[in-house]
């Protein structure tokens, strides 16, 4: 049985806790022992990507310290997982010891779907979600972590779920962290394009493994009063068929 140390991105913790709760459920259903080290806060990605590397390094150090002994660190966010796995080492400032620590942790950090499929070799988690769903390839999942098929494999095994491919699934949704508020016009134009692709695919839900993309895409869809909604992959995988209950609609 694998002991999983869960990393919950700060923004999921505060604004979208249901994503974290769903991840816990799926992991436990998969037979993992889930722990949530409470000393964790933020992986430092916002500081890293805006160029505040001193602040990023301090947060990265906390992350490495908190998870140093973990067997596997699982995170329901592609970009936070990518930060821990790929960006930490860049914050070395010539410090070889830090590079070593960061490199030692990196192979134990997993994004949620990656962990299920690559590490647990699990694609059927017993979920039931009778809806038409489009998968958006969140950039960091796809390009930093090379996760393209894993989420789709998981979705294909969900009972009742119809997986559809939208156009331009790999095009950035336009969130981009600080970019979303620094250059809102460009960010929103990209978000509208993504939303239009979701709608054209006649999907009821758009999903991915990155909560921040979903906040952005979901926000655009809601503002446009679109039928489609954004939902995290973990929430779909956590949905189960309950006798007598109406079809899950989180």
């Amino acid at each position: 049985m694998i002991r999983v140390a869960l990393f919950i991105p700060c923004f999921v913790d505060q604004l979208a806790p249901t994503i974290g709760q769903a991840a816990v459920r799926v992991l436990e259903r998969a037979g993992c022992t889930v722990e949530f080290p409470e000393a964790q806060t933020c992986c430092g990605q916002p500081a890293f990507s805006t160029g505040h590397w001193r602040e990023a390094r301090a947060l990265a150090e906390r992350f490495v310290r908190v998870f140093a002994a973990a067997e596997a660190v699982v995170c329901p966010s592609g970009s936070c997982a990518a930060t821990a796995r790929r960006a930490f080492a860049l914050l070395d400032d010539g410090d070889a010891a830090w590079r070593r620590d960061a490199a030692a942790l990196a192979p134990r950090v997993f994004e949620f779907s990656e962990f299920l499929v690559r590490r647990l070799r699990l694609t059927d988690v017993g979920a039931f979600f009778p809806h038409r769903v489009a998968y958006h390839d969140a950039c960091h999942l796809l390009r930093e972590l090379g996760v393209r098929d894993e989420p789709r494999q998981l979705l294909r095994e969900v009972r009742g779920l119809e997986l559809v491919e939208m156009e331009e699934p790999e095009e950035c949704c336009g969130f981009g962290g600080a970019f979303a508020v620094a250059l809102p016009a460009i960010s929103a134009a990209l978000g509208r394009r993504k939303a239009a692709n979701v709608e054209r695919a006649q999907a009821e839900f758009v999903t991915t493994g990155d909560p921040s993309c979903l906040l952005h895409i979901g926000g655009v869809l809601a503002r446009q009063r679109a039928r489609a909604r954004a939902i995290h992959l973990a929430e779909i995988l956590a949905a189960e068929r309950r006798p007598g209950a109406a079809p899950a609609r989180p």
Binding site: C139, H140, E170, G174, F175, A178, F179, A182, I186, L190
Partner: peptide, 8 residues
Amino acid sequence: FASSLCGA
């Protein structure tokens, strides 16, 4: 800053 850092 004119980038969403998507990596494409």
